[in-house]
């Protein structure tokens, strides 16, 4: 598991994304001060190809999935600006139960 304290953006996986990734989190885009959501998701898919297709559609969350920045803002916009140290949560859009 990548250490949470490393620079870069931490992508946390929930639900099916966690199951497909086979892990709870990954750190990507290390060494960058700032980046975009789309680049983070592309980097995550490169490291974890199991995510591509079902959970990720290129630089965006797949239909039925959402990203959330720092457990606060939900977004699917690949241009969402991110900074080193941010956490992106990848989760199913359908939260009901």
């Amino acid at each position: 598991m990548d250490s949470e304290g490393a620079s870069g953006v931490t992508v946390e996986f929930f639900g099916i994304a966690r199951r497909r990734a086979g892990r709870t989190r990954i750190v990507v885009c290390q060494g960058l001060e700032s980046t975009r959501l789309g680049d983070v998701l592309l980097a995550a898919a490169e490291r974890l190809p199991e995510l591509a297709g079902e959970c990720l559609d290129g630089s965006r969350p797949q239909d039925g999935y959402l990203a959330n920045v720092n457990a606060r803002r939900f977004t699917v916009d690949p241009d969402t600006p991110l900074q080193a140290g941010d956490h992106v949560l990848l989760l199913a859009a359908d939260a009901g139960g």
């Binding site: 929930f14 639900g15 099916i16 079902e54 039925g64 959330n68 949560l89 359908d94 139960g97």
Partner: peptide, 23 residues
């Protein structure tokens, strides 16, 4: 398909961890 994969594979119990992370 994928729209219901969460319910099939994990069930709604999976919400607990997600909701916890979201406060």
């Amino acid at each position: 398909g994928p729209a219901t994969a969460k319910y099939r594979e994990l069930g709604t119990v999976d919400n607990l961890v997600t909701f916890n992370r979201l406060g």
